[in-house]
């Protein structure tokens, strides 16, 4: 009985210790500096691309901005927000995946619908505009 209760106490302690350890955050000086240096590089590249007018094609510049931005978001998530698949039993990651899906639907859906709306609108001539109520 005593051993049973001690082992339970141990498990409780271990669990509490874990959650406490998580609460304190598991970033180290090295991980923060790594994240910072990567962020500076990933911020400097798109600004340089736009301000220096490096690439000739607009599509290439916009694609580069978006890809580098996405990489930088992942860098921030990993090095500053300490995202991983294990914290809170994987529920933070589940919430993140759910949010990313909803965000993607909201963004892509809005652009898709509004683009179709624009292209299906009748072209107005100046005469029609004059006759508007």
């Amino acid at each position: 009985m005593t051993t049973n209760s001690t082992s339970h106490e141990d498990a409780h302690e271990a669990h509490h210790g874990h959650s406490h350890g998580h609460e304190a955050g598991h970033g180290s000086f090295k991980s923060y500096v790594t994240g910072f240096v990567l962020s500076v590089i990933l911020t400097a590249i798109p600004f340089w691309l736009v301000m220096g007018d490096v690439l000739d094609s607009k599509v290439a510049t916009v694609s580069a901005i978006m890809i580098i931005g996405a990489i930088q978001i992942v860098v921030h998530m990993v090095y500053f927000l300490h995202m991983n698949t294990k914290s809170e039993g994987g529920w933070t990651m589940m919430a993140l995946i759910f949010t990313v899906i909803i965000v993607a639907i909201a963004l892509i859906g809005s652009l898709w619908v509004m683009h179709h709306l624009n292209s299906n609108m009748m072209v107005m001539s100046p005469e029609m505009m004059k006759n508007l109520p």
Partner: peptide
């Protein structure tokens, strides 16, 4: 998190806007 949102703002609004 606010810094992460700012990455989206400067990429989409400022940089892509100027391009």
């Amino acid at each position: 998190f606010l810094d992460v949102v700012w990455i989206g703002v400067f990429s989409v609004v400022y940089l892509m806007g100027v391009v």
